[in-house]
Design a protein around this nucleic acid. Structure first.
Lengths: 115, 115
DNA sequence: CGAATCCGCAACGCTATGGTTGCACATGAC
DNA sequence: GTCATGTGCAACCATAGCGTTGCGGATTCG
């Protein structure tokens, strides 16, 4: 089977990415390196606590790790999980391409081998 | 700016993918070509109506299109949107790589140009 | 025609999600 | 020591998400 809890993991991944605020956080972390929750909340339209919750969701999905640094906590992107997401999409696309190829075969072969 | 409503679109995309049932539908459509809602609901653990709602979400995100075919409605995958999702992930990864490169630069250059 | 499918709409319930606020606890700066 | 900053915990609220059921309207098949 190509999919059991594997799909659940992917769903969690995409779910974590499926929110404007969280996507914004991911982009900031991707572009600027590790930062604290309060730092991330400065540009944002929501409170620090909201950002913290989002960071926890992202960490739950494995997209982010945290590290205590003195009195502040730095969050950093985990780019390998992004690769996982891409791999999943690649899988679906590949399946689609194969399906198309099969269709084309059927069309371009007017006389399938009889008996 | 690299991101305004562009991020919102990406969020909608990922949101649509961020659900087990919907991911399952996407995989089925990807692997087997176009199918009707009822056909899709046969293997699933939820009702046909649930599947229909999910298909509407997927269509709202541009991941799926529908076409009336006699008395049934066929849903098909729109793989270009998958590419969009991948492009977004690529962008974040690229930013991260640049950030790492900058860090390395700073480390490997013990004496930054004084004055 | 009648029967069997398949779709579309609407009402409803439950839970999770995203967000807020308030306050107590560490830790670093002065 | 004192003050400022940053974090952590908890309660709470509103709404959107996911799922169900029930029923009426098309459309194909016999």
């Amino acid at each position: 089977m190509s999919t059991a809890g594997e799909r659940a993991a992917a769903a969690e991944l995409f779910f974590a990415l499926g929110d404007r605020t969280r996507l914004s956080v991911v982009q900031k972390l991707g572009a600027g390196g590790a930062r604290s929750a309060t730092a991330l909340s400065h540009g944002a339209k929501v409170s620090r606590q909201a950002i913290v919750k989002h960071l926890q969701v992202l960490e739950g999905a494995g997209l982010v790790t945290h590290e205590r640094r003195g009195r502040e906590v730095l969050y950093a992107l985990e780019p390998r999980r992004l690769d996982d997401a891409r791999a999943f999409l690649d899988g679906v696309s590949a399946g689609w391409d194969r399906a198309l190829a099969r269709l084309r075969q059927l069309v371009e072969e007017p006389e399938p081998p009889r008996r």
